[in-house]
Amino acid sequence: MHGLINRAIQSFVCATYGQSCWLRVTEAADLGFAEFEAMLVYDDDVTVRVMDALCADLNRPRAEILEDLGTYLVSHPNMEDLRRLLRFGGVTYVEFLHSLDDLSDRVRLAVSDLSLPELELREVNPMEYQLCCHPGLPGFSSVMVGVLRAMADDYGALAMLSHDGQEGEADVISIVLVESAFAEGRHFDLGRASYD
């Protein structure tokens, strides 16, 4: 598993549950180290052990933790870089949803050895969408539910998200847009400097 994914889990656990929780988890997972390097690649098994240890430590189901991780990736100040990259996807939430089709390609452009599963957006009607998460990264659809929920807030849209079962090997997420301009949303400028 790419270090960026492991590092995201580490960052989420440290920011949400504290450093001591992370150290307990790395010890229980028998990592032999406590810091993931974002730019190295680790055995998939390492990530599985960390997630198992985390679920046991928090006594919470994996899907729930992964949704929180997705929300963290967008909404926490630590992750401002990532939020900005996602906001490049479009001017409105619907445009952003459509940009998800290109997400794995965009990610590969930035970090060539980080491959995320393909995503496919289907428009049921202008207020209702389905996002197909193709296989390749277990738990990815749970993370995406958290990401989509937090991005709706970011754009000021009011949306309802839920898992909508499976289609073949793909997980389906249902997105119902209640109102596309519900609140102000967070500010986004193309220029980084002016944002800082």
Binding site: F88, L109, A110, D189, L190, G191, R192, S194
Partner: peptide
């Protein structure tokens, strides 16, 4: 884009400017 607080809407849909900034 910083000096003038430009947004994606300020560029035509075929302009690669926003992709460039993303990259």
């Amino acid at each position: 884009v910083g000096d003038y607080a430009l947004t994606s809407a300020d560029f035509s849909g075929t302009d690669l400017a926003v992709e460039l900034l993303y990259l």
